[in-house]
Amino acid sequence: MTQQDAHTPRMGFFTDTSVCIGCKACEVACKEWNAVPTKGMDLLGTSYDNTGGLGADTWRHVAFVEQPVPVPDAAGSAQGADGMRWLMASDVCKHCTHAACLDVCPTGALFRTEYGTVVVQEDVCNGCGYCVPACPYGVIERRESDGRAFKCTLCYDRLGEGLEPACAKACPTDSIQFGELDELRERADLRLANLLDAGESDARLYGRDPDDGVGGDGAFFLLLDEPEVYGLPPDPVVTTRDLPSMWKHAGVAALTVAAGVAASFLGRRS
């Protein structure tokens, strides 16, 4: 019934980390809405991040990065005192245009929805685990207690009801913006231009470019530093981009096997 016409626009997230206050409301809202189990009590000592990263039991993850930076100059502040900044960023499944997880899933449990998002059908997944190493962002994971793979669904059930995803709804500062991808990209371009104008020279968009290694992310980000600082790969590529070549090499190797066996048997009988 939620099947929409072919023209349903692609929906996604623009996460503007420059306004994230690290409140983790997104993490909690996601867990509440999706009944994601707790991960357990584990004090990590990585600033205020005790979640660590995305996984089967963490579909939104807020990163905290403490960095020393030169103090913005206060009318002749020549004390040379070093300031600091505290970057916070809420990470999520990227809902890649070319999604490796989906490509490699042998059961079809992972599928692309009418909103252009990537979702696991829990009743189909057989826990083969293939999607796990396939994801170039390290997002999807198999849940030990259950055997199946889990990740953000972009609140597929909510979209069907015309609701925005739980994490975006809970985000107080609109760091997480949900909407039509095209429109989000425009908004992001504008925001980036503003920040660059304001002297935030390290600001950049991540995953916005449809020509990148995964064909652009359905959930993309505005970052204030290099992606790896936030635990993101700097230049992810969907593994299946090389799949034809892999099959070719495997084919030649198979023929080599065939030839090798044949040659071995064609030889003189001892």
Partner: peptide, 19 residues
């Protein structure tokens, strides 16, 4: 497999993109 009883789900679809 995480859910061994669903081994046959492997044969639900044929996906050349999935080795």
């Amino acid at each position: 497999l995480g859910v061994p009883t669903r081994f046959l789900n492997m044969l639900r679809v044929v996906k050349p993109t999935s080795p």
